[in-house]
Computed example of a mutant assay.
Amino acid sequence: MADFLLVHGAWHGGWCWRRVVEILAGEGHRVFAPSLTGLGDRAHLLSPDVGLSTHVDDVLALIEAEELADIVLCAHSYGGAVATQVADRVPQKIGALIFLDALLPQDGRSLLDLDSPERREAIVSRVVETPRGPVLPPAPAALYALAAPQDVAWVDRRCVPQALRTYTDPAALTGAWMQIKVLAYACTLRFPAPDFRDLAAQLAKDPRFTIRELASGHDAMIDVPQDVADLLLSSAETARAAKATCAAPAETPEGTAS
């Protein structure tokens, strides 16, 4: 049995992992798919104080409360900025880290800092001021290139505005997350924006990363849940093998355990 922790992307909530959760839980694994503060079933907690560090603390608190270890941590889209910082804080508790069309943050820089000036201006122009602080309204689900019209309608129905601070707060990283033995990046092929495919191509040069492609839209956990579950299960198996190798006793030159 493995422990899976799934971090959703912008405007979404834990609900978007429902199909993957059913597959993994059906095979006897423990699966956690929390909604980050101000999103999903926790949309009522949106406030001016919610920022990127709030979401990092959400996931760290769950790990602590559930006493998780050897976690298979998977992040989608914006969730990459959250999961990378979580993994950086507790790398010893992460067996595998999988990025699914996900952003990779940089120390001291916000997600908006990583965008081009043109895209940054386009994002800021969409900001809406509310009594709960400035927010970014959800992008239309049609942009995600989902295969089924009913899924597009579901995503549009469930997505909610997200606190702007989650995109303007700088990330805090030491690089400790790169110690994790199993690192994988999966990009989707039907999502029209090339950003995540470009990132996968860059990471393909790093021998620490395994690169996968999924024939789906951006919300692969909705579009191809079995493929995503298979990726997570194979990552869990690789992490178990890596842990067993590290735990195996060293042998003397004569071939006996030292």
Rank of each mutant, 00 (worst) to 15 (best):
L231F: 03
Q179T: 14
D227I: 03
V160S: 13
A215M: 07
H29W: 05
G80D: 10
R18L: 06
D151V: 10
K181G: 15
H44I: 03
A172R: 15
I180H: 05
T252D: 13
R212M: 06
V224R: 14
G26A: 11
I222W: 11
I211S: 04
F191K: 04
T238Q: 14
T37W: 06
L183D: 11
A25K: 12
A153F: 02
P117V: 11
L146V: 09
T256Q: 14
L52F: 05
D169M: 09
G255M: 02
V155P: 08
C246I: 06
A83Q: 08
L52W: 03
A229T: 12
R197I: 05
P48D: 03
R158T: 00
G40T: 09
G217E: 06
A257G: 11
R197P: 02
A193I: 09
L189K: 15
Q202D: 13
L233V: 05
A229C: 09
P34Y: 03
Q92I: 00
V128K: 14
A247C: 00
D156T: 05
I63M: 13
A25Y: 00
L112I: 13
A25F: 01
D70M: 01
Y185T: 00
E237T: 14
R208L: 05
D227W: 04
W17Q: 04
E67S: 13
L114Y: 09
P137K: 04
K93D: 12
S258E: 13
F191A: 04
A83M: 10
D41N: 12
T238C: 02
L143P: 02
R30H: 11
A220I: 09
V127P: 11
F196T: 01
